[in-house]
Amino acid sequence: HDVTIHAGDKTIHVHGASEEFLRIIEQAKRDGIHEEELLRLIEELVK
């Protein structure tokens, strides 16, 4: 999957995102996670 995530003034493109990655991001959004926290989460996941 190619994913584009908008968080605040940043746009992150993730190529080859796994289903698990997508679920984590969707869950985080539903939980109302702060955008900066979401960015950190994404950066950890894509290392």
Rank of each mutant, 00 (worst) to 15 (best):
H1D: 07
H1W: 13
H1F: 15
H1A: 11
D2K: 12
D2E: 11
D2I: 15
D2Y: 15
V3L: 12
V3W: 02
V3K: 03
T4G: 02
T4M: 05
T4H: 09
T4A: 05
T4S: 06
I5W: 00
I5F: 03
I5R: 01
I5H: 04
H6W: 03
H6N: 11
H6G: 06
H6R: 07
H6C: 09
H6Y: 04
H6I: 15
H6T: 14
H6Q: 14
A7D: 04
A7W: 14
A7G: 05
A7K: 02
A7Y: 15
A7S: 07
A7P: 03
G8K: 01
G8P: 03
G8E: 03
G8T: 04
G8H: 05
D9V: 03
D9P: 05
D9K: 06
D9A: 06
D9T: 08
D9L: 06
D9C: 06
D9Q: 07
K10T: 12
K10N: 08
K10W: 06
K10R: 10
K10F: 10
K10I: 13
K10A: 07
T11N: 07
T11H: 15
T11R: 04
T11M: 10
I12H: 03
I12V: 11
I12P: 02
I12K: 01
I12T: 04
I12F: 11
I12Q: 02
I12R: 01
H13G: 02
H13R: 06
H13L: 10
H13E: 08
V14I: 14
V14W: 11
V14A: 02
V14F: 11
V14N: 01
V14L: 12
H15R: 07
H15G: 04
H15M: 09
H15T: 11
H15L: 11
G16N: 13
G16K: 03
A17G: 04
A17K: 01
A17M: 14
A17Q: 05
A17P: 06
S18R: 04
S18G: 07
S18F: 05
S18N: 09
S18T: 14
S18E: 03
E19D: 14
E19C: 09
E20G: 06
E20Y: 12
E20V: 05
E20R: 05
E20F: 09
F21Q: 06
F21W: 13
F21H: 05
F21A: 06
L22K: 06
L22I: 14
L22D: 02
L22T: 06
R23N: 07
R23K: 11
R23Q: 09
R23V: 05
I24W: 10
I24Q: 08
I24C: 03
I24L: 10
I25H: 00
I25Q: 00
I25F: 09
I25L: 12
E26P: 00
Q27P: 00
Q27V: 06
Q27W: 06
Q27M: 11
Q27D: 09
A28L: 13
A28G: 03
A28E: 00
K29Y: 13
K29W: 12
R30V: 08
R30L: 13
R30N: 09
D31M: 13
D31H: 08
D31I: 07
D31F: 12
D31S: 10
D31T: 08
D31W: 10
D31Q: 12
G32S: 04
G32E: 04
I33V: 12
I33P: 01
I33C: 03
I33E: 02
H34Y: 09
H34T: 15
H34R: 12
H34W: 09
H34P: 14
E35I: 14
E35G: 15
E35N: 12
E35H: 14
E35R: 07
E35A: 14
E35Y: 14
E36K: 11
E36Y: 15
E36W: 15
E36S: 14
E36R: 12
E37W: 14
E37C: 10
E37R: 09
E37I: 10
E37N: 08
E37T: 10
L38M: 07
L38I: 07
L38R: 00
L38N: 00
L38S: 00
L39C: 07
L39E: 04
L39W: 15
R40C: 03
R40Q: 08
R40A: 11
R40I: 08
L41A: 01
L41E: 00
L41D: 00
I42S: 00
I42T: 01
I42W: 10
I42L: 09
I42F: 15
E43Y: 15
E43A: 14
E43Q: 13
E43L: 15
E43I: 13
E43M: 15
E43W: 15
E44N: 10
E44P: 01
E44W: 15
E44R: 11
E44Q: 12
E44D: 11
L45N: 02
L45Q: 03
L45P: 00
V46M: 15
V46F: 13
V46P: 01
V46S: 10
K47E: 08
K47T: 13
K47R: 13
K47G: 12
K47Y: 12
